[in-house]
Design a protein around this nucleic acid. Structure first.
Lengths: 206, 206
DNA sequence: AGATTGAACGGTTTGTTGATTATTCAGAAA
DNA sequence: TTTCTGAATAATCAACAAACCGTTCAATCT
């Protein structure tokens, strides 16, 4: 690729920033430091990234790629039914982000900054997860496991909506992980089974 | 009642505070102002309330009493099935809080302060709504409309959990009312119908 | 005695100043 | 020309003082 030259420098910058951010935090590292780590002037960084936040976004995006790959494995795991796969995906999502944000405050800081200043990035992540859910629902339908009553893209949106609370645990509530897990279990159960007896009479009559 | 003397003064204080808070906001009104509105010294306020926040809480509590009464009317409305009543309750909750917080920033400010400094008050409100939901579910079971698969108290908790996002709209998302309504409609549908076909085969076989 | 006051205390907010830092851009280097 | 630099700029942050306000309590009133 012709662009490869710029890309190498870009990833060099990202690596330098990753080290600084995880050592000292986002706010405490300066563009000048990142630049000097890359043996360049501060101004030159701006030929590769529009701004400091975009470097953080690149880091987040990179780590999100791995995350979503992991999630896709769970969503498509063979030998499990759709219910289990949905369960696995939502629980792994809860646990992994909980632990990531719990473990070090640097990650929490970056999550807060990006979440606050770059809502479109958050939307991008949500959209990706939604396509994952749609894939899961498609597969489930193929096997006759779920009966999605409408447009699958919309159902995925609703599943996300109902499980929002568990997606960025410590941003929205101060519950402990066990409590969150218990709640997620219950919500998921409700989502799958529903409240309604599903009018079996009519089916029998037909 | 023997306590009536103190109660009169208490409600006088609450009224004065209500005026100040809604005119100038919570942060911008001082205890001295409230006191002088009641022709008393600042120190004397503390014989009636432990602190400023408790006055705000009293105001919020008062308005919440009205709210919950309104909700109970919807939850118990005759001539409607459980599904409609649940729908009405959740939608009215969304709309009324949305409009209240939308209309004036003072209410939003107080909601933020109380939500931040008095999580136990928020829990108290949630608990009340949960008992309302349990009443609704009880009535539904009595009429054979829902088949709650477990403990009703727990189901109510899960319904709350799945609809959190719609309970304090502008604290958790920046969506417009129509979008929120559309999402709530979808989530509610999912909660009621569920994703699963509900193994009708077994029922027929029995 | 009990009720009430208002000055005093300590924590927070506000306003100000100076330094730091993200970002830009005119020009130097290649 | 294209690539890069580093000083200039403007915005943000940190530190400190002053003012403010919620809260307390010794003294005063009833």
């Amino acid at each position: 690729m012709v662009m490869t030259e710029k890309d190498i420098v870009r990833s060099q910058i990202v690596e330098a920033a990753k080290k600084r951010f995880s050592h000292f935090g986002y706010a405490k590292t300066t563009m000048a430091e990142i630049a000097s780590d890359c043996s360049m002037s501060p101004g030159n960084l701006y030929r590769f990234f529009p701004g400091k936040l975009d470097i953080a976004e690149a880091i987040a995006s990179e780590s999100y790629q791995e995350h979503i790959a992991q999630m896709r494995k769970l969503a498509m795991a063979p030998g499990k039914d759709a219910r289990q796969r949905l369960h696995d995906v939502l629980f792994e999502e809860l646990r992994s982000t909980y632990h990531k944000l719990e473990k070090d405050p640097r990650v929490l800081e970056m999550a807060n900054v990006i979440g606050h200043e770059r809502p479109e990035f958050v939307n991008w992540m949500l959209a990706h997860e939604r396509t994952l859910l749609v894939e899961l629902l498609d597969e489930a339908e193929r096997r006759g496991e779920f009966l999605p009553p409408g447009d699958k893209e919309e159902i995925a949106e609703m599943i996300q909506s109902a499980t929002m609370k568990f997606r960025y645990p410590q941003l929205w509530s101060k519950l402990t992980l066990p409590k969150l897990e218990r709640e997620l279990e219950g919500v998921l159960h409700l989502l799958i089974e529903g409240l309604c007896p599903h009018k079996m009479g009519k089916v029998q009559a037909a």
